[in-house]
Design a protein around this nucleic acid. Structure first.
Lengths: 204, 204, 204, 204
DNA sequence: GATGAATGAGGTTTCATTCAT
DNA sequence: GATGAATGAAACCTCATTCAT
């Protein structure tokens, strides 16, 4: 008996081409930077005609957003899996930090896509999901009693700030190339949030 | 007796014009964003002719870099003053963090100018100076014995990461608008760096 | 006994599809204007594939011409029926003017399709038929003796000019929306052609 | 003594270039039609760079509108002069009709620019001025008592319809090439408006 | 006959930079 | 030094048409 195809071939081809374009676009963005990210370059890299790019993405803006969405997907999937796992909180934390740093290191463009003022409304839900991934882990930490309750948003921002900060500054020259930032980030943050609420503050 | 001018009038005028252009350029960048940052807009805002802009800045790139340098100048001056002052370390720290956040909040474009991979070689010394400003303060902290010695670069990066992270994420929606980030940053970092080196770590 | 079909089913289907496309094309042209008149829009409106449009019409040009022909068809049919009828001339005239105005009002695009210099050679016979429809009526008027003989072409042009002029200018703001132009057109034209040949002209 | 220039040379040159572009644009529009009216063609015809066209006209749309405005200018000037002159009404009328026909014959594009649904808001005042030019003459005719009072808007539309109709249909094949339409238009209109209000109408 | 993804020439527009005055 | 019109490469995007399935 002949197998019933799940999706018709046309549709499958279409999706495959979309993926090829997305991958080519990512390569262009990674290799040549935002300035050189032109539809023509993407078309050449993907070996499609210019017009064909526009059949899949309504505008250059949308294409960039889709790259960001595409790049973050695995990270978010892992983050959600981690948050839902029954690993102890600290392992969740460490793995999430490591995964995030790895993603950011591999795909510098992502940082930029998330960069302040990218302004695209399309990315808002993506950013939200990113935030929530961290938030879920932190919540677990509070549930385990490892870190104090309260002010979770600030805690999450502090954590993401540390991660993003290390990711960004590593691209410059401040740190040794092979420096493993994860222990520092985790250590600073855990130490910090544990004591932050108790420390009496002096001065202005 | 007629005073001997330190700098001849010609030179003074030239500097004044340069400053006017720089200020106009900053206004344009702040008010209308990078996309609308064109030499023509700058010229109109500065009330100079297009060609005159090029008398003072060799290219648009250079102009942008000079804005970044210009914007950071007061912050760096204050940072160096703070580092050289005889204020207790924690006050130095808190004031520097506050000043940095204020600068970043006022001039979002600066963040972008510093944005990862802006690629301009011209900004490298500026970035270095920024780093050193933080470094000097941290060194004071170590000298006072408030924070442990060693791994100063990592400490500085952690601090700058926290600051930059809060600045960036505040532009999104994660935190309440009037949230004062300074105590959190200082608290997390101080708590973190104090314990980071001692904490035994578990898991992978 | 099974009826012998006049036209085989294939052919009937084909004609039905052609009509559906034509109607969809007219709707697109009417609703969204020439600028938005693209084959893709027509295909979507007709619920056919792009390629299918080309099965029925060799090019976009031809499709537009066919719309014009199609739109004028009922008007021409009525005009020829009127001319062949035994209604008194003035009723023929009035009804033709009214029908023409109604067609032009309903289908503004027609005006444009007929617009000076649309250039399509294919429309020449349509234009001719349009002219002849008016001509036949005018000839009846001459036969009845209501309007003087001679210079029939000029008379027809004058009449069509009046009709077209009112149709066009009504789309602007010169006349009240609900103004019934028919009496004015008929009156002016009848009065005019009746006296035109007799009036002594002064001045240059 | 050296003469004081009315306008500085820069300004004069600028205006001259604007005029050259406008003239070139008119030639392109006249010779090759709307379809081929591209900025590139205009630039080539005017012997300017593409970008230079945009220094003078913000968009292709604006350029087209300016052609229309430019083309109508002399006609309107003459119309207003005629209306203000103390020529007898019928001479005003005949001359205006003749001038209008001449303009429309010379510059077919004008017809199109005025064509129904050109839609450009920029042209609204131009159209209004066109209408008012006719209106002023008709008003004079009423003042002289040559044509009856009342319904002036309809009279003006009738007149403009006749003129436009003859102009348009002459471009087709209905009339002999050298046919002088002016007497017919003036005759039909004068005869028509004189009797239009008095004629009893029959039929529906 | 029907389909619709792919094509790519061609259009509009922007803008950093030059240069004659 | 100041001016600002001119330049034209290069970007984005559209859409009539083709053609393999």
């Amino acid at each position: 008996m002949v197998s019933e195809p799940q999706t018709p071939r046309r549709e499958r081809e279409r999706l495959r081409h979309r993926r090829e374009i997305l991958d080519a676009a990512r390569r262009v963005l990674s290799a040549r930077g935002v300035e050189a990210f032109t539809i023509e370059h993407v078309a050449k890299e993907a070996e499609f005609a210019i017009g064909s790019i526009y059949r899949h993405f309504a505008s250059k803006e949308e294409l960039i957003d889709m790259i960001a969405a595409d790049l973050s997907e695995p990270l978010f999937a892992e983050a959600e899996a981690l948050a839902a796992s029954d690993l102890p909180f600290e392992q969740q934390l460490e793995r999430l930090v490591r995964a995030t740093l790895a993603t950011l290191a591999d795909d510098l463009p992502l940082i930029r896509a998330f960069g302040a003022g990218s302004g695209s409304e399309r990315l808002a839900p993506i950013r939200a999901r990113y935030f929530e991934a961290f938030d879920a882990i932190v919540k677990n930490g509070q549930r385990e009693g490892v870190i104090p309750k309260g002010a979770r948003a600030a805690k999450v921002v502090a954590l993401m700030g540390l991660v993003a900060g290390f990711a960004k500054w590593r691209t410059f020259d401040a740190l040794p190339k092979r420096f493993d930032a994860v222990p520092t980030i985790v250590g600073v943050w855990l130490g910090g949030v544990a004591t932050a609420t108790k420390r009496p503050r002096k001065g202005r």
